[in-house]
Design a binder for these strands. Structure first.
Lengths: 99, 99
DNA sequence: AAAAAGTACTTTGTATTACAAAGTATGTGA
DNA sequence: TCACATACTTTGTAATACAAAGTACTTTTT
């Protein structure tokens, strides 16, 4: 038997960051407010998790407009895609051991 | 689109607790020392996570002996099995959305 | 023109958590 | 008797999560 949790990334231990990443894997981009509504979190809390993910180079930010209103969107980076994929593979291997 | 992290259990956010549970899903029981070696954690740290899981009713403890040496083993409870299964299903659904 | 509201934060404060390291009780082997 | 093993508990620190309040800027409403 080998350690079932090798390959799990500490950054993705958190459910909110997990949610952000999985949303961004299947959506080209998503706005701050849509993310907030989707994950059902407070704006301050979401903002800090987004900072963490950005600081780690897993997502990139685009500050734009919808009409004249500010609209910040987030997208996954190449590194984010790679790192998150590895995490998911590790999760799947763990689950496979369970099933 | 719906919230991808509903159904994820907070207790299982932690990698070590995740590891303990997934080991106990496929092993009838495992000793403290084997768990410690397998998950590569310090004994104190492991002990606190085991307490958390036990307090939540997810595992049961059996204090026995091997020859004359103390040997504490851990096993999953019915509740633990059910709750962890639900967590894994939630994870799988999240992953499915990603793939 | 003034007031209210929206966006996307930042700051502040609190409570919880993770973890290592050291300490402990009990027993065993040399 | 002394060192070692098991399975913790205690202690202390650092990191984290989170809500709530504050902020800067703009837009919409009245």
């Amino acid at each position: 038997m080998k350690n079932p949790i090798t390959g799990l990334n500490k950054i993705f231990d958190n459910r909110i960051r997990l949610g952000v990443m999985s949303v961004l894997m299947v959506n080209e981009e998503i706005s701050f407010n849509d993310l907030k509504a989707l994950l059902e979190v407070t704006d301050g809390n979401l903002a800090t998790h987004l900072v963490t993910l950005e600081e780690n180079g897993f997502l990139k930010v685009h500050k734009g407009f919808i009409g004249r209103k500010t609209n910040t969107t987030y997208a996954i980076t190449r590194l984010g895609e790679k790192t998150f994929s590895e995490h998911i593979n590790a999760l799947e291997n763990m689950i496979k051991g369970v099933k």
